[in-house]
């Protein structure tokens, strides 16, 4: 059981990085970036290929740069070519499929079994210490902490405030000195690079990257984000909102791990995450309808 929980924690934390990317684009900027799946895979492929060519350290910035480019492309389609934000995401997502195969050298799989990765580097460094069996979680925690601290800093800078205002009230921003298009581009570039980092880490963690590594990750990350949403209020501080999102990702993984224990087949993961997202997003609507109905019945009863 503890082994399962530990793997759930590790995978949950890798996912959490992608959840943090969505926290920026979906929660703060209020744009659902549908290129997330492709961007995640892009990061995984670029990171894997770079690591395979003998540059494990370089694989991280390379993957993040790739993700930033993907985010910039999505916002370029919106800003300069007048394409709706959802459609822009889908277009880039589709294009990335071809690009990812090209990056992996006309293959749909890159094997990292013999390559040096960020994880093997840490394994070797910690070989003789008491932490030797925890090297994976240490690497992942390191990245999660850096991203949490970065977002907490970034969202409170003047630039971060402008990005949040763009997501919170477009009408206000339109008549202010903030350039909404530029803010969208910057935010999508940053969130793209964080998402790609998450993909890069997953590929190196499981020692392979393949073309399907990111499929459905948007829904899974959204589900985690919405579970995390339960743990804070409107007036919670930024760092609590960010940490709650990470926590949400962990809870999602635990739910999933427990369902596997109850003999749920692994392929049900995506169905479950879809259900969670559908229910979580429609909850406020359903609740309002329920209240209206109850009120209506009460009034009818009076006649």
């Amino acid at each position: 059981m503890s082994g399962i929980l530990f793997t759930a924690l590790e995978l949950g934390l890798i996912n959490a990085i992608c959840v943090l990317a969505l926290f920026l684009s979906y929660q703060m900027l209020n744009i659902c970036d549908l290129s997330t799946d492709g961007c995640f895979t892009f990061g995984a492929c670029v990171g894997a290929v770079t690591a395979l060519s003998g540059h494990p350290y370089l694989s991280i910035p390379a993957a993040m740069l790739a993700g930033a480019l993907s985010g910039i492309t999505v916002s370029f389609l919106q800003w300069k070519m007048g394409i709706d934000s959802l459609l822009a995401g889908i277009i880039v997502n589709t294009a990335l499929y071809s690009i990812n195969i090209a990056v992996m050298g006309n293959a749909s799989l890159v094997n990292l079994n013999k390559a040096e990765t960020v994880f093997t580097l840490f394994r070797d460094a910690l070989r003789n210490s008491f932490l030797s069996s925890y090297y994976r979680i240490i690497v992942i925690l390191l990245f999660v902490t850096v991203i949490v601290l970065f977002l907490n800093w970034f969202l409170k800078t003047k630039l971060g405030l402008a990005i949040r205002a763009t997501g919170s009230n477009r009408i206000m921003v339109a008549s202010s000195s903030v350039d909404a298009d530029k803010m969208t581009m910057i935010a999508l570039a940053v969130s793209g690079s964080i998402c790609a980092l998450s993909g890069c880490l997953l590929a190196q963690y499981q020692k392979s990257a393949n073309i399907d590594i990111g499929s459905g990750i948007l829904t899974i990350a959204l589900a985690s984000l919405l579970i995390g949403r339960i743990f804070y209020r409107h007036d919670s501080s930024m760092v609590i909102k960010i940490c709650a999102s990470v926590f949400g990702s962990f809870i999602f993984r635990i739910i999933y791990a427990l369902s596997l224990r109850l003999n749920m087949p692994a392929f049900m993961l995506k169905l479950i995450s879809s259900l969670i997202v559908a229910l979580a997003i429609s909850f406020p609507y359903l609740y309002r309808k329920y209240q209206e109905n109850r009120h209506m019945r009460k009034e009818e009863g009076r006649c």
Binding site: K158, A162, R164, A165, S168, N169, S176, V178
Partner: peptide, 19 residues
């Protein structure tokens, strides 16, 4: 509703405009 950002605090709204 069109002059302020609802999801940001009072001070953050002000800082955006006047910092």
């Amino acid at each position: 509703l069109s002059s302020t950002a609802p999801d940001m605090s009072i001070i953050e709204n002000l800082a955006l405009a006047g910092m």
